[in-house]
Each structure stands twice: as structure tokens, then as C-alpha cells.
Design a protein around this nucleic acid. Structure first.
Lengths: 359, 359
DNA sequence: ATCGGCTGATTAATCGTTTAATCATGCGAT
DNA sequence: ATCGCATGATTAAACGATTAATCAGCCGAT
């Protein structure tokens, strides 16, 4: 845009020095006397000097912009992620360019290309369900899950699953149903795996994947949770707060009180989780931390990189690649009903009290 | 970034012409013979030429980047907005730089400055609760609500309110409680106003603002909706699906079936609305349309602008500034109970019916 | 034959910053 | 006195695209 502000030469002229000296003083690179540096700094701030990114970019080959690729932008986590990344990036002096790829893989590739064409210095990618990131021409930070090869940094989803499960176990639950969306997602698998790993001998878990179910029964179909309660399940450990919400409302609608008759837990601490009734017990990622690590790794890779090299785009690595999740205990999970159904078949179905439910 | 691709001069050298000719041919500006244009186009695509934004920006003063400012980034609408703006912008050849301002007004100002410093060509701002946008140095498109002075384009929130209200009225509701967050928001006020305008003589509406209530009773406090039902309210028209969700779960938890005993409606058709039970009846904005108009207006203003002028930043205007909302009818709103409770105290709590409900 | 006008291309300057190379100067050591 | 050296600053060349100004032909008209 029309840089209304003063340029380097303006400052130089004001002080009667050369532009190079000003540049050196401001960047602290060349040899400039301390007093000169002081004077230049002063007039620079006084005049409100802001360096032209365009000029700098042209010369250095660095734009100071990172690209953020969220393949599944409808994801309710998006605000959290975008906010965290933007904060981390701007703290490091970077801007964030977003690209959307409406779930589609080919659109994702095109979106990435658009960012590359805009000369981003690096890319933060939250891949869609185990998508392998093609070799792009710049450093890439991948935020997926620690078990994914090529992952840069992510929440400890497995550990989060364990925390949720430990909580449910301590409350006395023995039969828990895990509810996820799609087993092809690494994140979802890790969360589910973490949960399962806690319930060993004498416990029972099963997993309900929504997407395959909806393929048959249609979008937004009932999950049949009242039947599951009748079968003796006392807890529903959902892989995302979105599923938890779906489960919770379905149970409530069927007249099954949460958490008295059935417990529900989620993941991610999404926006609505604290304000619904009962408020959701969930496991939260430390997005701020994750974003900070991802951006730091990216910035390091960028600064170490020779701007004119053959440009390989392997994912960057960070010192810490696994950030613990935090258990947020609210009201949606409690001890199971005192009269605990046997671990066998469904005779408990009779005890379904009032409340309409249609399969 | 290291532009690995070929530069203008590379193409020029390949064809034995000057760089200027190549530039002219590609932009269609100077005088170049038709056949030359053809040849240049061909080799350009063949070599995979992508112009350097930095070089172009430096010369033209245009970066081809728009800034998107979402003052309340935690807003669950964010994905919709960001997606729509990004789509519209990239269709016009623009990139989208995001800036967050965690609700804080001073942070918002700083965020805008950061974008300006990065030489964005224009700004799309979804202002926080009636914030007045200070004069920035570039064209600005404001997406708020049609009644706000300086608004560029927005959904017809008032009209959306009317649609919701007409729907409830047609179903037979006479006493409806409007639930909003904060009356300082122009959007919320318009939605509420639209609803009220439909219920005239013989009807009753009241409004519950959550934020003031939470100031007293704490975050996530109960809204006391069971009492409202006892008072004879049969419908809860929420200003956002987030509030609708809160209302719905609170009612369900109190054993009040939705929609048999009380109807609940929302706004925005947020991610969870179709999948909860009962699915939410709501009014949706046409974000794609709104974004398209906003970006088009911005692009027009940018192209008409002299990049070196004194740069005033008054909001741009569009031909259409009001985009109709769409009513999405699902299951959360139905006819009120036949036996309408008297407008007095709470004895109705006993008459919990039972049984399924099929629309 | 010369000039004017048109076409299609080239030259060269410019945007603002960085940075390698160069230069002037003063000072201590031989 | 001179050489070497460190210091503090300047020069000038890039980066890649755009664009005003210029130029070489060529054709038709005076």
C-alpha cells in the first residue's frame, strides 16, 4: 500500500548520514558508533518509521509471513488454533496468511500452492485425517499427533485419553462407550487408544464411529444411546466436545439424566462446553503452548535456511513434540448409578423410565 | 522466500526479448503483437512462472493482500466468516492476512496497525459490539449490521429476527422470551428488534440479557428458564445458537421437553445445530454472499485508488448492503402445549408428558 | 524525397531495503 | 615517519517487476 510513512532515506537525510548506516543501525549488523545508533533509533521512532516489507522482502527473500493451512476449516477448533498461531507468529514478528481447503485434498494442495506463490517463509499445517504433506518449497510445521511420522508438535492425545479414562475409572465406571467420528484420523485414534489402554481386565469398552453410521442412517441420525444405556454402559467418552454435545442432548431427550444415569465426557473444551447444562467434563489442549513451539521451530528453520537453496520442505522438528493435555472437570461426569447393571446382557432395558425415544 | 521459479528475465532471455515486453504481454498493458503475447504466455506457463509479489509490491505499492480483523476471534462464527472471506478474496487474486484482538479494543487497534504496517491493500473488519473504526490508511469494508452507520454489507439481522418470529407466531406462540448476550451489540439488538416487531397487540415478549446476569451470578450460571416456562413462556428465541444451546440443555436438564413443552430457536446455524437433539431451528446468514460483496467493494475501491494519495480510510460502500437471512426449520420449535398454563406461578412442573415426538 | 504517424519493441529509471566492498581517518607499534 | 589495523561511515549493486520515455522501422501522404 501507499507507505505514507517515512522511508529509510528520509531518516538518513534528516541526520545527514547514508541510508546504509541507518539500515545498519536499526538492524545492528554493520559497524555503527553507539551514539549514532542512538540518534538513529530516536529519530526513527520519532518519525514513526516502519520498514517496507516489500522492499525488505525483495532484497532478503523473506516476507515475514507464515501460512496457516487448516484443511478442515469448519472445524470448531479453528478459532482456538488460529488465535494461538496468530499470537505466536505476531510475537515473533510474523504475519499469518490463511488458506482454506474445504476438506478437499486437491483444494488443499492448491491452497498450499497459493501460499507458496505468495512467498510465505513457512507453513503451519494441521493436516486433515492423516493426509501426507507433499514436499513443498519451504519449512513446514505439522500439528497432528505425536504418533504421526513427520509431526512437529501436538497435544498428547493419547495421554489426554488416559486422563479422561482415569477420571471415569476413579468415578467407578466399568462399561464405557467411546464415541468418535472417523477411525482414519490419527488424532481420534490416539485419543481412543489412550482411553482403552486404561480399561484393562474386568472392564469393558466399545467404540462407536459416527461417520460410517451416518453413511447408512443419514446425517444427524440418532446414535441409539438409550439402548446403550440399557445394555449397561454408564459412560460415554466422546472424542470431541461436538460428539459429546450430540450424545448429551440425545440422552437428555431420551429422559436419561446426565450425569446421574450416564456420564458424558468430551475433548477440546470448545466454546459451548462451560455454558451448557450440565457443563462438560473434557480434556483441553494447550494450544498456546503448541502454537508457540510450532512457530518457534518454524522461525528457527527459516533463519537457518539459505534463502537461495534448493528448498526442500521436510517438516521441521521441535525439541518438545508432545504437549500434555489438561483435564477439565465439570458436571457431566459423575459416579455411575448405585445399582450397577451386570456386565452381561440387557435386562436393564425395563428400567428405562419415562421420556420418549424413537430408534 | 527463495523464488525457485523463473523470473521475468528468464522468460525474456528464453525468447530473446526484453523483460519489459514480457511484463507488458502478461499484463496486457503496453503494445505487444498478438503472436508475441501468445509465445510469451506459452513459455510462461510452460516454465511455471509465478510473479514475485515482493517485486510487484515494491513497484506498484499494491501487495495483493487483504487484512481480516475479527475482534472477537473466539466467536464460533469465525470459521464461517474466515472461510467465506478467504474464498472471495482468493477468487479475486487476493491473500488474506488475519489479525486477532482478543476482544480488547486497544489490541484491536494494534492488530489493525500491524496489518497496515504489512501493507495490506484493504481491510475487512467485523467490529466488536459497535466499535467505531478509527480512520486507517486504506479502504475498509465493515461487516456489522445494516443499521450501523458506516456498515458496508451485512446480513439483514432485523429481517432474520422477523422470520424467526413469524415462524413462532405461526406455530401458535404468544409469550416468547428473547435471549441475548449483550444489548450493546448492534447485531443482537437488530435481531431482537426484528423479533419484537412481529409480536404486537395480544402478544408478549421480554428479553433476557445474559452478560449482565453473569456479572451477578457468575459465568455459566443457570438462566432460570424453568421458572420462565412456569410463567407461561412457551418459546425461547435466542439471538445465537450458542445461547439456544445453553437454553436447550438447561430446559432438558429441568425435565422440560423441547419442543413439546417449550420451543427454542437460534441464529447462525452453527456447527452443532444440525446434530444435536432436537436439531435447532435457526436463521442462517449467507456468508458467502456477504463476503463476496464485501471483497468486491474493497477490490473496487483499491483499484480506483491512487496508491500515493493522502490515504483516507473511510469504509467503502457496496450496491447491496443488506443480504437476507434464511430460516432453517428443524425440530426445536413446534406448537406450544395445547393446555396453556396460566400466566402465574409454577405448578406446571408436574405435568411432564411422556412419549416420543415425530415431526 | 521528406515528414508524420503508427506499430512493436527496447531502455532505463524506479520502488525501499540490505549488504558486500570500499574508503577515510586516527592511533599504536615498528 | 611509516606501516598496519581497527573503526565508522559511504558507495554501489543488487532483489524482480512496472512503466514512462525512447527508438527503429515502415507505410502513406504531402
Amino acid at each position: 500500500m501507499a507507505r505514507s510513512g517515512p522511508k529509510l532515506t528520509r531518516i538518513a537525510r534528516t541526520l545527514g548520514v547514508s541510508a546504509a548506516t541507518v539500515s545498519n543501525a536499526l538492524s545492528g549488523k554493520g559497524r555503527v558508533s553507539a551514539e549514532m545508533v542512538e540518534k538513529i533509533r530516536a529519530t526513527a521512532t520519532e518519525l514513526g518509521y516502519v520498514p517496507s516489507q516489500a522492499g525488505r522482502a525483495l532484497r532478503t527473500g523473506r516476507t515475514g509471513v507464515l501460512g496457516l493451512v487448516l484443511p478442515d476449516i469448519a472445524n470448531p477448533l479453528f478459532p482456538q488454533i488460529a488465535q494461538a498461531i496468530e499470537l505466536a507468529a505476531s510475537s515473533s514478528g510474523y504475519g499469518v496468511l490463511i488458506a482454506d481447503s474445504r476438506g478437499d485434498v486437491s483444494t488443499q494442495t492448491k491452497a498450499i500452492e497459493r501460499l507458496i506463490d505468495r512467498d510465505v517463509d513457512g507453513l503451519v499445517i494441521v493436516p486433515r485425517r492423516g493426509t501426507r504433506i507433499a514436499d513443498v518449497g519451504c519449512p513446514v510445521a505439522v500439528i497432528d499427533t505425536p504418533s504421526t511420522p513427520g509431526n512437529t508438535v501436538a497435544a498428547d492425545h493419547w495421554g489426554g485419553g488416559r486422563q479422561i479414562a482415569e477420571h471415569l475409572k476413579a468415578l467407578g465406571h466399568c462399561r464405557v462407550l467411546i464415541i468418535g467420528n472417523n477411525p482414519a484420523s490419527n488424532v481420534q485414534n490416539d485419543r481412543a487408544g489412550g482411553i482403552r489402554s486404561v480399561f484393562g481386565e474386568g472392564y469393558h469398552t466399545d467404540t462407536l464411529w459416527i461417520e460410517p453410521l451416518e453413511k447408512l442412517a443419514g446425517k444427524g441420525c440418532p446414535l441409539g444411546l438409550a439402548d446403550k444405556v440399557a445394555e449397561g454402559y454408564t459412560a460415554f467418552a466422546c472424542i470431541s466436545d461436538l460428539h459429546a454435545l450430540r450424545a448429551l442432548t440425545e440422552l437428555q431427550r431420551a429422559g436419561i439424566n446426565v450425569p446421574e444415569r450416564a456420564s458424558v465426557t468430551g475433548f477440546d473444551d470448545l466454546i459451548w462446553s462451560p455454558v451448557i447444562t450440565p457443563a462438560l467434563t473434557t480434556a483441553r489442549m494447550d494450544m498456546t503452548e503448541i502454537a508457540a513451539i510450532a512457530v518457534a521451530a518454524l522461525v528457527k528453520a527459516i533463519s537457518e535456511r539459505d534463502p537461495s537453496d534448493p528448498a526442500i520442505g521436510a517438516p521441521v522438528t521441535a525439541e518438545t513434540s508432545k504437549v500434555p493435555m489438561h483435564l477439565v472437570i465439570r458436571q457431566s461426569a459423575a459416579a455411575p448409578p448405585a445399582f450397577q447393571p451386570v456386565h452381561t446382557t440387557a435386562t436393564a432395558a425395563t428400567s428405562v423410565t419415562e421420556g420418549g425415544h424413537q430408534p
